[in-house]
């Protein structure tokens, strides 16, 4: 048992899960927005990054880490709601390229703005838990308190989101307005408000992911979410953009795959790992591994 927990195989499993849950969170946040408004939010990572910066600069004023996390998430949610109202609402009913372009522009603005305010140098945030790896009878196990926290927090957020959609009245309204906006409107649901709430929820989930990223080894810098957004998108696409469970599974898959390519193939080709998986997944099922096949209306 001892050898097993500290084996290089388990090292890669733990490492893959640790990054995988972050990808899962980002993928989940993308799926929430996609379901409600059919926009792929290219600024998702950058919005979360900005929220993290705003929250974490509060640490400098002597406010505790956990309050700063809460501030980051609240700021993230506010930013998400505001973005939907101001940037996305004018574009409903326009060609699907328009919101993509606008969000890509927003991504550029946010990253430049963050670099302008806080400089592009990496900021390390004192993590709330130790990053020192556990030991098992003198052998290193590649799990630290922080990694355990990161995995548990991500799972907690996912369960929370699932419960919200599944068991609350708000969740029912959100699902109804995503599925049949016209009918929902007739039934008295404020569909516009639901779209805003969907964006807020999504941005909140994204902010949690960004806080974890910033608190870990990666640190906080204006483009820290770029690669993670790409991986999260691939995860969501592998799962089929429609399915929250698919997004979570996709995230774990990408995380593990990256780790194993890095360990057993070559670190040089690691950047291509995500693309290879996406291409393979799309060849097997173009509509995503976890989505029900839908016929497009003509």
């Amino acid at each position: 048992m001892t050898a097993f927990l500290s084996s290089s195989f388990m090292h890669n499993i733990f490492g893959g899960l640790a990054t995988g849950v972050i990808y899962s969170l980002v993928a989940l946040s993308l799926v929430i927005i996609w379901q409600s408004t059919h926009v792929l939010n290219f600024a998702q990572g950058a919005m979360a990054m900005l929220a993290t910066y705003i929250g974490m600069t509060e640490i400098d004023r002597g406010i505790g880490y956990w309050w700063c996390v809460i501030i980051s998430v609240v700021v993230g949610m506010a930013l998400g709601g505001l973005t939907e109202r101001v940037l996305i609402r004018p574009l409903y009913g326009k060609p699907e390229i328009n919101p993509i372009v606008v969000m890509v522009g927003f991504l550029g603005v946010l990253e430049a703005l963050a670099a302008a305010i806080w400089t592009s140098t990496t900021r390390n945030i004192t993590e709330p838990f130790s990053q020192i790896y556990y030991q098992d009878h003198g052998h290193l196990v590649f799990l630290s308190a922080f990694i355990v926290f990161q995995i548990l927090l991500a799972i907690g957020i996912m369960l929370l989101v699932a419960a919200l959609f599944r068991f609350t009245k708000l969740g029912l309204q959100l699902r109804a307005s995503a599925l049949a906006p016209e009918v929902s409107r007739l039934l008295g649901i404020r569909v516009g408000r639901m779209l805003t709430i969907g964006w807020m929820l999504s941005a909140g989930v994204g902010a949690v992911a960004a806080v974890i990223v910033a608190s870990g080894n990666f640190g906080l810098f204006p483009t820290d979410m770029d690669g993670i957004f790409v991986a999260g998108f691939i995860a969501a696409a592998v799962g089929g953009l429609e399915s929250p469970i698919g997004a979570v599974a996709g995230g774990l898959l990408i995380g593990l795959a990256e780790q194993f390519i890095l360990a057993y193939w070559s670190p040089n080709v690691a950047p291509l790992g995500g693309i290879i998986i996406l291409v393979l997944a799309l060849m097997i099922r173009p509509q995503g591994l976890f989505s029900k096949s839908v016929s497009r209306r003509v």
Partner: peptide
């Protein structure tokens, strides 16, 4: 800092406004 990142800000805003 602001001056060095001005291009990113201007281009991004222009992209959004134009679109």
């Amino acid at each position: 800092n602001l001056g060095a990142n001005m291009q990113g800000i201007i281009f991004g805003v222009l992209l959004i406004v134009t679109m």
